[in-house]
Amino acid sequence: MVVGCLQGDCHYISGNIRARARVERVLAILGKIGIGGERLRMFNLSAGEGGKFAAFAREFVDSIREQGPSPVNLVRAGSGQPAEAEGGR
């Protein structure tokens, strides 16, 4: 989970916009190699929005729990079917 400032409210002017572009790149990579892009999310929040932060965190944790362990963890635990990345074999 990556958290950035609100759009247009970044101390580094466009830092949070750039960060989102990079998160999206990582997300695409995770999707392509069979890990799943849904395991990474970026939220935008202000420092004063504690309640919202907690809600986002819960929402993300729930979504991860729903997805279950990552393919890597499944393989490590010896209980899962290996994931097939698009370019594999």
Binding site: I35, P71, V72, V75, E84
Partner: peptide, 8 residues
């Protein structure tokens, strides 16, 4: 990551 997930 990709190779570990694929079990190799």
């Amino acid at each position: 990551l990709a190779r570990e997930a694929a079990g190799r």
